[in-house]
Amino acid sequence: MVIVVAAILTVLVGLALWYGFFFIRDLLAHKANLGPEKGWIAYPIGLVTDFLDTLGIGSFATTTLGFKITKFLKNDELLPGTLNVGHTIPVILEAVIFITVVEVEALTLISMVVAAMLGSWLGAKWVSKLSERKVQRVMGIALAVTAILMALQSLKVLDILGRGNEAMGLSGILLVVAIIGNFILGALMTAGIGLYAPCMALVYMLGLNPLVAFPIMMTSCAALMPVASFEFVKYSRYSKKGAIGLTIGGILGVIAAVTLVTSLDLTLLTWLIIAVVLYTSVTMILQSAKPAATPVAPSPTEYHKGA
């Protein structure tokens, strides 16, 4: 397992370097116009949301909430891309820090991670082409699903699924189900549905030890997000100032969570987040029924014409 962990860490670092190069190159190419947003707002949002992400709450729903409260984004069309691009490096940092804590059979871990990567690649191709109204509708549904899963997790319902499970790996038909399931979750994550809670439910239902969920879900996210973000960066379907703020603030948030927090009761905070996320979900679904705003980002065809 030591060799497997070393190999995975090498791949994650390689993905971070590859993605970082591509991301920075895109920012430099558009340095004269990084967008109309107030960039400083994204830094504290990134710090808080990735702090919470490191503690297991997740970052997509909370970041969406932060953007809505501050009215950071002028157009929701850029929301999925900004979430994925901005949180990629902090999530990779989380995985690098925590992957050595729990052992899981190599075949199960690697196959599920690769499946999530492939799912995110296909999902990002679809999401990166959605109009603002469709993004609002998809994100509204995604937030509702996320809130429900967070509630089930807080009520310990997901824990019940994993009670008594001892397996550290899967084989046969159960492994196939796990691969297909994580492929779907990887695709859904590009649309704004966080992978943590549904992945945890998946491994519990398949009979895996609850601790196995952590290396699987963290490594899956760390591996799939650079792949998904590549598509959003490629078509310039993200807020550049937002992604910069989330990345830098998020790195600080991860470090703070790892170094400062040993025990923290997040029950009240989690339920507060669930309530507001549900409200945001309803708001976005209602907004999707209104006439679409003028897009602020080029379509893939227009992007290539201007390149």
Rank of each mutant, 00 (worst) to 15 (best):
I8P: 00
L55Q: 11
T247V: 03
T49V: 12
L73W: 00
A222P: 07
G35D: 09
A228G: 14
L286F: 12
L118A: 11
E302S: 14
V145M: 13
M117A: 06
L118E: 04
G119E: 03
G86D: 00
V177R: 04
L195R: 10
R133G: 08
V101M: 12
V102Y: 15
S281A: 14
G186D: 03
S236A: 14
A42D: 10
I92Y: 01
I273V: 15
G253R: 08
I255L: 14
T64E: 13
G14S: 06
T146P: 03
I274R: 01
G181D: 09
T82L: 05
L246C: 05
S111W: 00
D76W: 12
L264R: 08
K134P: 01
S236R: 15
E94M: 13
P36Y: 04
N75F: 08
L15W: 00
M205W: 02
L158C: 02
M205A: 14
A124P: 04
A151H: 03
G250F: 08
N182K: 10
I99S: 15
K134G: 04
S128I: 00
S154F: 06
K125Y: 07
A293T: 11
V261T: 14
S288M: 08
N75P: 11
L12C: 05
K125V: 02
G58T: 07
F67V: 10
T262S: 15
V282I: 15
V96C: 12
A257P: 05
I92E: 00
I92W: 01
P291H: 05
I255Q: 08
Y279P: 04
A115T: 00
E77F: 07
G253E: 12
V4H: 06
Y196L: 14
F51E: 12
P291D: 03
P80T: 02
D26Q: 11
T10A: 15
A275W: 01
E37L: 00
L152Q: 01
V48I: 14
L278A: 13
T63R: 08
T146E: 11
A147L: 04
W121K: 01
L28E: 11
L260D: 09
F67C: 08
A16H: 03
A297S: 15
A7W: 07
E77K: 13
R237T: 02
L149E: 01
V261E: 12
K31G: 08
V177I: 15
I148M: 11
L130S: 06
G140T: 02
L264S: 10
L83E: 06
F23P: 06
K290D: 00
A293K: 15
H304Q: 15
I251L: 14
I244F: 11
R25H: 09
V127H: 05
F67P: 01
G306E: 15
